[in-house]
Amino acid sequence: MPNRVAAVWSRAQRRLHWWVAALILLGFAIAWPMVALPLTELLLKFLLYQAHKTIGLLVLALMLWRLLLRARRGRPPPLPGLPGWQLRAAAAGHAALYGLALAVPVLGYFVAATAPAQVPTLFLLVVNVPHIVGPDPAAFAALRLVHRAAAILLVVLAAGHAAMALRHHLHGRGELRAMWRG
């Protein structure tokens, strides 16, 4: 990714950051009851799955938008005065967050497509998103594990990212405020 240096994050970049964060947390929170619900609660189970799939597709679209904006507008310079290892750790952490935020929805799409129960993916409950592959129980079982593990890793990394932001904030640095208000 080109690291063009901008003065600040643009308003669109800041808003997209928070929208993606909120959607990831919501999608993650929905996932557990959605899987645990018995088939006797079919309607609710179906609606939770479709909400989860819609959120995943939104995250994917917004992440692609973020990548585009980042390539065009760049990012502010890293925090001054941080030791090199912290800068490298931050860069690796951010790259992993971008990668996982893209990979988890893509993996989720393939989980849905290979699932033995052929339930369509209905974006916002109305737009049928075609499945480019069919049911495949072996692939489904593997993809499901990877999707879940990657999602857990994403949320753990995002929590670490939030903890770092909070730590800088408590040390009097302005990044968290700047990301929120510009």
Binding site: L39, T40, A115, P116, A117, Q118, P135
Partner: peptide, 15 residues
């Protein structure tokens, strides 16, 4: 028969 074993169990059940 259904594509998914859990659906089969559901359809065989009393309801």
């Amino acid at each position: 028969e259904m594509p998914w074993a859990n659906e089969v169990d559901l359809l065989r059940s009393p309801p």
